[in-house]
Amino acid sequence: MFHWLEKHPFFFSVTVFVVVAYAGLVEIVPSFAQQSRPVIGTKPYSTLELTGRLVYIKNSCNACHSQLIRPFKSETDRYGHYSVSGEYAYDRPFLWGSKRTGPDLMRVGNYRSTDWHDYHMKDPASVVPGSIMPKYTWLYKNIADVDTAYAEQLTIKRFFDVPYNKPLPMKDGSKQTVKLADTLAGARADALAEAQKIAADMKDQDVKDMVKAGKIPEIVALIAYMNSLK
């Protein structure tokens, strides 16, 4: 049937190219669709938020908490709008998780507050009777690793052109810019300024004192990350 092609290497090559290129197009073209772009309102993590994300990963929060709301009414009633792919544009790696021992955290910033996280991380059962979540008391003592987060920010800005220092469209029509400092000292100062705002809403006096002394405990970074999940 394709005998003619077999006798003409040039046209055989052209045909092979067309078939492979077609298969490639079918795979590649959809990723340029609008649905695959960052959703309006999605912005990269600030230095402190990214620090908190590292704390989240370090403590394997994703082993018990998912970050993916499925399109079922029972889930959207509880957690808010179902997740769409463009919301994970700045998540490297994404933290979908595969098991919900605890609730989903995709939009926890919408319905929990800084002071609640403060009580809850210290002693989960004090606010959620019967909770099996362990106490994360060491987060109140360990100093957060801002430097690594800043290094990660620089890397993703350079290699993936993550839009730091650029105005990004928000859901209400306004523009927001996520700042990335030029120097490590600047990044530390930014993170501390952000930490001071979080600490002002917290109740733990030790944490407040530490932040006042210029140190950022991991809990503050983690709460900043939790509050950014919307």
Binding site: N110, Y111, D115, D201
Partner: peptide, 10 residues
Amino acid sequence: AIGAMPQFDR
């Protein structure tokens, strides 16, 4: 005084 309550507009 106690803290912040998020909105529950959903």
